[in-house]
């Protein structure tokens, strides 16, 4: 257990180091922050003075070193636009994004397991074929098209669901305000969560189906039949438990990836989360904010991967939680 934790922590540090390096070097290539900061009317000399003052003329490694030391103290620079600490700006928007991801994950888990299992057990039934066909369509339609389609149908045409924003939220803790506790907040969550889930859901259904079909061919499932067990027990204990092992690994990583997909969803639904914020930051060349975003997203990746490993180790008895594979 301890070896496992140490291994994960070392990995996490390594990943964060690389992310910080990458995101920091992006700064150099993203236009001139001074223009955003001071406008066009400042002379070249004043600009140079300001550059020196901001340390923008120092060598790369010096700049990175300064950045890293500060970053370790939680200081990722000040947003040029908001004139506030970048990390604080991002963390302020984090709950909205996490709730979106959580809602989408819920939809994916609740639908993909029963649909994947059913279409593995009855691969030739009409329903399974329909699910498989729809999932192909689901994978190939881009998220923003799904989102616009949903808005058109449910908000504009039927008028059932709100089309933008988070609606009414309740404060929970610190900057975290939740939309899960009010009817209005929940209504606002529905469409964005569905469109965010729309890419991953078909992938998960297909993944679970493929794994399950393979497991159903295994000797131990045949042996379970030969023991005279009830189909329910064979499908949902013997087969499903083995099916979920690889699904947890692949799926966990995919859920982490979903954080990146929120950029599109949040933009279409004007969702006040960090994906939306990130796109604005890119438009404004607000580099500290961009860097802070990348680092926070990197941290989320590391955390989800660690959680996934932990869960995998708990479900799979053949994995002892040690550093070894």
């Amino acid at each position: 257990m301890i070896a496992f934790l140490i291994k994960r922590i070392v990995q996490a540090i390594l990943v964060m180091f690389i992310i910080s390096l990458v995101s920091f070097s992006i700064q150099d290539n993203l236009g001139d922050p001074l223009r955003e900061l001071v406008g066009q009317s400042v002379s070249e000399e004043e600009r140079q003075a300001l550059r020196d003052q901001l340390g923008l003329n120092d060598p790369f490694l010096v700049q990175y070193g300064r950045f890293a030391v500060k970053a370790l103290h939680g200081d990722l620079g000040t947003s040029y636009f908001f004139k506030e600490p970048a990390l604080q700006v991002i963390l302020h928007k984090l709950p909205a994004t996490l709730e979106l991801v959580f809602g989408a994950t819920l939809i994916i888990v609740l639908l993909s397991v029963p649909l994947g299992v059913y279409s593995a057990i009855k691969p030739n039934s009409l329903f399974s074929r329909a699910v498989m066909g729809l999932s192909i369509i689901g994978i190939s339609v881009p998220v923003f098209l799904t989102a616009i389609g949903l808005i058109y149908l449910f908000s504009i045409y039927l008028g059932w669901m709100p089309s933008f924003g988070r609606g009414e939220t309740e404060p929970v803790f610190g900057p975290w305000e939740t939309g899960f506790l009010t009817v209005d907040g929940l209504q606002h969550l529905v469409l964005p969560c569905i469109s965010l889930a729309s890419i991953m859901l078909p992938l998960f259904i297909r993944l679970i189906r493929a794994e399950m079909m393979e497991v159903l061919q295994s000797e131990y499932v045949k042996f379970a039949w030969a023991k005279g067990l009830a189909p329910r027990r064979i499908y949902f204990l013997h087969a499903l438990k083995n099916t979920m092992l690889p699904v947890i690994t692949v799926g966990g990583v995919q859920i982490g990836t979903m954080v990146a997909y929120t950029i599109l969803t949040e933009t279409v639904f004007q969702w006040p989360g960090m994906g939306f914020l990130f796109l604005e930051a890119v438009n404004r060349v607000d580099t500290p904010l961009i860097v802070a975003y990348l680092i926070v997203v990197g941290a989320i990746f590391v955390v989800t991967n660690t959680l996934v490993d932990l869960i995998y180790g708990l479900v799979n008895p053949t994995v002892k939680l040690t550093g070894k594979k």
Binding site: E219, K222, F223, K241, N242
Partner: peptide, 12 residues
């Protein structure tokens, strides 16, 4: 069955 390595369910 033939192969006891495959006959028993690994997660039970």
């Amino acid at each position: 069955f033939q192969d006891p390595m495959m006959t028993l369910n690994p997660v039970l």
